[in-house]
Nucleic acid binder design. Structure first.
Lengths: 190, 190
DNA sequence: GTCGGCAGAGAACGCTCGTTCTCTGGATGT
DNA sequence: ACATCCAGAGAACGAGCGTTCTCTGCCGAC
């Protein structure tokens, strides 16, 4: 089987994503990624010059994938309030996945954050992107203080993400949706 | 300097706590703990038969310390509603610490959760303890559905804990307190 | 057919780690 | 003073890691 550069890159990223996400980045050796991707070590290092670079690529792709999954759920709704609640429906769907292990950025930050400024930066940027998306939704919903509403919603979201990882249940997303409706009522009523 | 068993154990746990919390458990070698604690490797292994055992002891002590810090803040208040809000004042104080790095259980779970059932169990128990404390407070505050209120409050708390770790600011705890008052109003008014 | 170059397999290298072993020096008991 | 024991320092060991190197076999060019 001959793979062009794009195919090989794809295979490596697929393998890295699955392994890094399941076991954490430090527990996974480059050889495990070679075995899972079927791409030789030599080629792997041509595509990604170091493990750190591969970790960055992994996080970058997670970010893009996550944002697009979120957008899919949100854009299926038209009513501004429903669009906000769709965020929690997305979290429910995500945390229901069998291999769900929480937020890759939080996990990787927990592993390397104090040691790797790049990872800290990527995690911070990922969360900032989420915050901006929520702020936009809050604005569209006519919130008196969209930034503040976004901050409140983000807390519920992050809470649901980590709690469902540890408890192994998708229930936190349901609870987060409930709490979000309460906060929406309180934030848009006046 | 001669140390009896209790002193040595204390020194080792102090060192392990600081290092594990700052850099994650996998990045810290036993030799670093030996150097930081001043306890010889031989004795270290007499006190804790393996690194896994030391990690468990570290988490166990974190749990106890965390619970007692929380209780301190809560018990400084008498009004049931204020006692609930004191949880967020605690989170603010905690996340303001210079060496704050989020929740040790979430971080360690992110590193080892999929690989170490003991760590997963300890994280789950720690969070369950927090949930019970919140449920008790919600009950005392006369909530119509204390379990549900506790679930909502826990989401805000977890969200604040992880967000302040990544953003490096204690602001999320303030936002969480705001959101908590909204949810309290909605949950205890009717 | 023969040669050159390239890709993959995996050996090799240097390092770190968890854990154990050895050696040494001092304290203790008689 | 001498033998005995123990604790500490750190060497040693075996494994695993990230990364690089070598060998081998295959492909196209002439």
């Amino acid at each position: 089987m001959v793979l062009d550069t794009a195919d090989a890159q794809q295979k490596v990223l697929d393998a890295a994503d699955a392994l890094f996400y399941e076991r954490g980045v430090q527990s996974v050796g480059m050889d495990a990624i070679r075995a899972a991707s079927g791409v030789s070590l030599k080629r792997l290092y041509q595509l990604f010059p170091s493990k750190d670079a591969l970790i960055e690529a992994y996080l970058h792709r997670r970010d893009e994938l996550w944002q697009s999954m979120l957008a899919e759920h949100v854009d299926a709704q038209t009513d501004p309030r429903e669009r906000i609640l769709a965020v929690f429906d997305f979290l429910y769907a995500w945390s229901s996945q069998r291999d769900y292990r929480g937020c890759a950025f939080i996990n990787t930050f927990g592993e390397l954050g104090a040691v790797s400024p790049q990872v800290a930066e990527l995690a911070s940027k990922h969360k900032e992107g989420f915050r901006q998306a929520l702020t936009r939704l809050a604005h569209e919903a006519g919130a008196a203080d969209p930034e503040r509403l976004a901050d409140h919603l983000i807390l519920l979201s992050e809470g649901a993400i980590t709690r469902s990882a540890i408890s192994g249940s998708a229930d936190p997303a349901v609870r987060a949706r409930e709490a979000a409706t309460m906060i929406l009522d309180a934030s848009t009523k006046g």
